[in-house]
Amino acid sequence: MKILVPISKVPDTTSKIAFTDGNTKFATDNVTFILNPTDEWYALVRALEIVEKDGGTVTVIHQGEADSEQFIRKALAVGAHDAVRIDAPATDGYNVALNIYEYAKDKGFDLIITGKETIDYNGFQIGGMIAELMNVPFVTLASSLEISGGKATVGRDIEGGKEIVEVPTPCVISAQKGMAEQRIPNMKGIMSARTKPLVVVPAVAESFTNVKVYDMPAPKTACKMIDPENMDELVNLLHVEAKVI
């Protein structure tokens, strides 16, 4: 079993979000970056569990500049066998998907597991794009995944419940909570990550979209405090003022 896990690097949720250059660039000063949670906790760990059981390898792939390598090493420390860095900043979702496809298309991966979304641009898009480029099945928002006999059995969330579906491999799955439990790298993992293979490949530039400018949502008006004894007033405000009931 050969599994590919695309991983991304994102600002920690507690980071202050600000922009520079006339609000055209995200200000990275003082921002702590982390591996994207769904990629690290769910996609990568489930991939490792599958090869631990059935044999095989897990390759992580990341598009980003050289300063991303510490995050790639972290994924290797968690247990990935080898890594690929696509040497260019990510321009849009299509650009990243295309680059991952260009690398993966002739390598014979049985399975590609992405995270459901990155917590910075909240795209939910790269997994589906890779699947279409590869012309293989795609199951999104998966909370469980079993592989056997050339088939993937996947639990996916639907409105108001959960659906269990089966698709043939090779396929692309996007992972979310429920699929696995986070693994903290141990000393042995961290030591061995230093010498695991990390290849750097060039990128293609094609993309579909670009961000022109960022802005901030309108500031919240101050919270109106209501007397806990007077829930009639709250209901009345929700009806008359907020018009939500």
């Binding site: 979000i17 910075d120 670009n210 960022y214 802005d215 901030m216």
Partner: peptide, 11 residues
């Protein structure tokens, strides 16, 4: 974007 902390105007 950024979980609702900002808005990106895409072209």
């Amino acid at each position: 974007v950024f979980s609702g902390k900002a808005i990106a105007h895409y072209q």
